[in-house]
Each structure stands twice: as C-alpha cells, then as structure tokens.
C-alpha cells in the first residue's frame, strides 16, 4: 500500500515506471478511487498534449538554416587528437630509439677489438658538440619526448659517432645538420687520436 503521490501518478500515466515501483503504485490505485480518477485524468491530459500539431518552418527558413549549419560544418576543425595519444605515439618512437642506442653501445663494448680509443669525445669538446647538438635536435627530431630522452642521455654520457648515427637513423630525418655534426665529431676524434 502506498500513500497518494501525484508525482508517481504522473510517471505511471506516462508509462515511465518499471518493475516493483509500477506494481506498487498500481496496487495503490486499485484500492484508492481518488488516485484512480486522477490517473485517468492525467492520461487524458497526456493524450490531449499528444494531439498538439507541430508547426513547420517555412521552406525559406529551412534553406537558410541548412546553409548556415553547413557553413558551420565546413568551418569545423577536425577534433584534436587526444594529447595522451600523441604522447603514446612519440613515446614508442623514443623507446625504440633508446633501446637501439643502448643495444648498439653494448654491442660495441662487447665486441670492440681494441679498447683504445673508446670513441668518446672529450668533455671540453662535448660542450662544442652540445652547441651544435641543439641545431641537430631541431633538424632531425619532431618529438619533444624523443628530444628530451636523447638530451638526458647526452648529458649523462658523451656521444659516440655510432650513437649519433643511430639516433639520426631512428629519427629518420637525418639531414645536412646530422652530416655536419658527424663530420665535426670525426674531426674531434681524429685530433684526439693524433694527440694521444
């Protein structure tokens, strides 16, 4: 048994009650003549509202609205790719490049027949390399993540030629700047070998 609740009667009249709630209200209505009469009146009201005609816009208005909306559609820019998806894409590239770099370094260390010269540039020359490296980074990388990761690696350990070549290859954008920096490092290494 439920108390008389006009709001629930509206939901029942509009068939927007399901399951236990509907059965509960129906049981109440079956025993309450007042609510039964009210439910019938509400259903008649809904039936009347449903007969209200739908006015139509004029053909000129339809055409005008359509053209305005199509104009807005044409101006729509494609939804921006979610930032996380961009990061994921570049993170994969960066990870692949790092794996290749580390792997290649290990291979060099394991199979290098002669430990001297090690192929590392001197710390002082590393500053020069860093100076040019900025240009190289801009030229051969298009990923902020990759740049950051490579930059961190560079600071922790001077670069070998092989590493630079590999990084350039991984980025697939090796250009004149890469060639320039490679030649520069070759010169440094050559001078170091002559001096040793």
């Amino acid at each position: 048994m439920s108390a008389c609740d006009p709001r629930e009667l509206v939901l029942l009249a509009a068939a927007e009650l399901d399951g236990a709630a509907r059965r509960r209200i129906e049981a109440h209505v079956a025993e309450c003549p007042r609510c039964a009469a009210e439910l019938q009146a509400l259903r008649q009201g809904l039936a009347l509202a449903a007969r209200l005609p739908a006015p139509e816009p004029s053909p000129e208005a339809i055409d005008r609205v359509r053209r305005a909306a199509l104009g807005a559609l044409a101006r729509r820019r494609p939804a921006r790719r979610p930032r996380i998806a961009i990061l994921r894409r570049y993170a994969l590239t960066a990870a692949a490049a790092l794996v290749a770099l580390v792997g290649w370094s290990l291979v060099q260390q394991w199979f290098a027949p002669d430990p001297v010269p090690p192929g590392h540039v001197a710390v002082a020359d590393g500053r020069e390399l860093t100076h040019n490296w900025d240009r190289w980074q801009n030229a051969v990388t298009d990923s902020a993540v990759l740049t950051e990761e490579l930059g961190t690696l560079q600071q922790s350990d001077p670069w070998t030629l092989a590493e630079i070549r590999l990084a350039g290859s991984a980025s697939q954008k090796a250009g004149d700047e890469l060639q320039e920096i490679i030649e520069h490092v070759e010169l440094i290494e050559h001078d170091a070998a002559d001096g040793s």
Partner: peptide, 16 residues
C-alpha cells in the same frame, strides 16, 4: 525530478 513531475501534474489536469 519531483518539481518537474509536480508541474506536469498541474499542467495535465489544467489541460484536461
């Protein structure tokens, strides 16, 4: 929802 149902209740009975 209760407010909307109360308005609807009044409106439907007035209409009828």
């Amino acid at each position: 929802l209760g407010t909307v149902l109360a308005k609807s209740h009044r409106a439907l009975l007035k209409l009828r």
